[in-house]
Amino acid sequence: MIVSKDCVVTFHYVLKTDKGDIIEDSSNGEPIAILWGHKNMIQGVENALEGKQAGEKFSTTVTPQDGYGEYLDEAIQRVPAKHLQGSDKWKPGMVAVVNTEQGQRQVTVLKVGKFMVTVDTNHPLAGHILNFDIDVVSVREAEESEISHGHAHGAGGHQH
């Protein structure tokens, strides 16, 4: 079976920077499982998986437009320290959680003042070219419940 709409794909991946530094490597755990065509993964990886089948290994480069977006300077904001969740004492480089109108969001702390904190709301990989080495483990038809829920179930996917 080849990867196409409404199928579940399981795969391992190694994510590297443009310089070749490894950011993530899934090979030491369960393969990730996604319901293909339902935006469960960044667009560049979904696009690269299309038409592949179990046993295929390949590499793909993902631009910011098909990854985590361009880095936006306007995404730097000052927020009251009391709105940050995850620690009692904040330092630059730490990741915090804030509640927004769109739900919880991770932010990176840039500067800490007495009452206000400067945070970066960009995804940490925004603006970066990403290189993936992908090993397709399996491809199967999705179950009706997976399609109706919009995600893969079971190991590597969403657990109910």
Rank of each mutant, 00 (worst) to 15 (best):
V95K: 13
I22W: 00
T61Q: 06
S148T: 13
R140Y: 10
Q43S: 15
D120M: 03
V117Y: 01
E141P: 06
A81H: 02
D120S: 11
H160T: 04
K82Y: 13
S87Y: 15
I134Y: 00
G67E: 00
S138M: 08
G67L: 00
G86A: 03
P80E: 07
D18A: 15
S87N: 15
D21Y: 13
A126G: 05
Q43R: 14
S148G: 10
N28Q: 14
I22S: 01
G37D: 02
D25I: 04
F115R: 14
V79F: 04
E30F: 13
Q77D: 10
H160W: 12
E141D: 15
D6N: 15
G67K: 00
G157K: 10
K5G: 07
P124W: 07
Y71H: 15
S145G: 10
L125N: 07
I147C: 08
V95I: 14
V98L: 11
V45Y: 01
Q106D: 13
F115I: 06
G44S: 05
D6A: 08
Q43L: 14
K82L: 11
G150Q: 01
E101Y: 11
S27G: 12
G103W: 02
F11H: 09
G44Y: 03
G86V: 02
L72S: 14
E74H: 14
K89T: 15
N122P: 03
I22V: 15
V136E: 08
A152Y: 07
G103F: 06
F58L: 09
V107P: 02
V9E: 09
T108G: 13
H128I: 03
G51H: 06
G37C: 04
K19V: 02
A155I: 08
G29H: 12
T108C: 13
K16N: 14
G51Y: 00
K5I: 05
S148L: 13
E56F: 09
N40F: 01
A33Q: 04
I32V: 15
S87L: 08
G93H: 04
V79Q: 01
W36P: 02
V119G: 09
V139A: 05
V45W: 00
A152P: 09
R140N: 10
I2P: 09
H160A: 10
A81M: 11
L35W: 01
E141Q: 15
L15T: 04
G44T: 02
F132L: 02
L125Y: 10
N28F: 12
W36L: 06
V139D: 03
T60V: 07
L15M: 13
